[in-house]
Structures are given as C-alpha cells and as structure tokens.
C-alpha cells in the first residue's frame, strides 16, 4: 500500500535529506522509523503526506503517485491518510469534541454522521469523559489521544505519527502505544511511526526501519534493539 522506489530528497537550500530510499509497506503493517536527529525521518514523512515532493524516484501511497500530485489534488489524497504530530496541533479555543469534529467538518462530512463518528473515536481513544474539556485542561497523554482521535476520524488507510510519544512520560507513552496497536488491529490502519524512544521499540517489537544520514541502514522485520550500531544515542 506504500511504495518508495529510489527516492531522494534535496531541499532548496542544497541539503541532502534522503538518498536512494527503497521501502515497501503492506496494508495493515505497523512500522517504526528510527534514527538519530537530522537523519531524515521527518522528511520521509513529509514525502508521504505530500508536503514535500521527491527530487528523484517514486512515492506511491494507496496507488497514488504523490510526487506527481497537483496542488489542488493534494487535499483529496490527504483524506486517505491521518497524521499525528509530536506537538498535537490542537485548537486551544475548541473542546476535545470540537477539535475532532473540526476535521470532519473540514472535509464536508454530514453533521449527524460527523457527530456520531466523533463520539465513536473518542470512545476508542478513551476520552469519552473528556469531550467537553479544553486542551488546557488535559494531560499530555490525553492531548495526544485527542490528536490521534482526530487523525483517525476519517478512517484513514494510513496513519503517520511523527514522534507521538516525544513529549510524554513512559507511562503515558505505553498507553499511546497500546492505543496505536488497538487502532492498527481494530480500524485496520497501516501505521508508520517515527520515534526516538528506543525503550518503546524494544518493548513493543515491530518492523523497524533505521535511517542514518538519509540512508536506510537497516530494516528489521523482527524489530527490537539495534545491536552493533555505532550511533545509538537515539
């Protein structure tokens, strides 16, 4: 469902962020992308959600060639994917319910259907009792659950998470991981998760792709702790 073939990315300022990336991910997989800072993890995600265009090579998600997507076609493509950010990106003046509803309203989901789906996903992420709370009244874990609820509201085939546990303590991180596993299982979403958190990677073993200086240096189907790796200051 996700295919990257000979992909490289050079930013306008001349920085080479990715070199000759080849990656295939099947429907329903859960994959970690790990690597030291500046190794190109966020760049890879931006290629997947259509924010950036590859300098060379092919990026294809759900059969759509994202590098060739016209500006006006990007929105329709994005309805196939959900994105979760480290900093949540929630609207302070809206409640948890409204934040999730906002995403469905923005793509023209009928009112009644949208309201029902918001309750459904908030139940799924365990925030049924916080629907009327504002972001300022929530813990980091609850904020991230809200962001995840928003990302999966439209039932995306692919859920992309850029360091979803980056700002959370270990307990909260574990909670988020259990939630993502549940989403992977129950909603059938393919999950690509960028992380720095090696403890999580070892605790919840999954296919792990290691990036280093813009190259894929390992792709471990079994996942787990990376041995013999010079730079494990992840």
């Amino acid at each position: 469902m996700l295919l990257m073939r000979n992909v490289s990315k050079t930013y306008k300022n001349g920085v080479n962020a990715l070199y000759n990336i080849n990656l295939t991910i099947e429907q329903g997989e859960f994959v970690y992308i790990i690597g030291p800072t500046g190794s190109g993890k966020s760049t890879l995600i931006k290629l997947l959600d259509g924010e950036e265009i590859p300098t060379n090579g092919l990026v294809e998600v759900v059969g759509i060639n994202i590098g060739k997507l016209r500006h006006s076609k990007v929105p329709m493509y994005r309805r196939n994917i959900g994105v979760v950010f480290q900093d949540y990106k929630l609207l302070e003046r809206k409640t948890v319910f409204e934040n999730v509803y906002f995403a469905l309203e923005a793509i023209g989901t009928p009112k009644a259907k949208a309201r029902q789906r918001v309750r459904e996903v908030l139940h799924l992420v365990g925030l049924s009792d916080k629907m009327k709370s504002y972001p300022a009244e929530l813990s980091g874990g609850q904020l991230q659950r809200t962001a995840i609820a928003r990302a999966i509201a439209n039932q995306p085939k692919l859920l992309i998470c850029d360091e979803p546990t980056g700002n959370l303590d270990p307990d909260m991180s574990t909670g988020i991981m259990l939630l993502l596993e549940k989403i992977n299982r129950e909603e059938g979403a393919t999950i690509v998760m960028v992380t720095h958190d090696i403890t999580l990677v070892n605790q919840f073993k999954k296919r792990t792709v290691l990036l280093h200086d813009g190259h894929i240096v390992a792709d471990l189907a079994e996942g787990g702790y990376i041995k013999n790796e010079p730079d494990t200051s992840l």
Binding site: R78, K89, L91, A106, I107, N154
Partner: peptide, 14 residues
C-alpha cells in the same frame, strides 16, 4: 494559520 494547517492536513479542499 494553525486552523488552516490542520484543515490542510486532514484534507480540506482549497
């Protein structure tokens, strides 16, 4: 800006 960014990531049309 934030609202617009969110709308764009969830796939709101221009």
């Amino acid at each position: 800006i934030k609202e617009i960014a969110i709308m764009r990531t969830v796939g709101a049309k221009n």
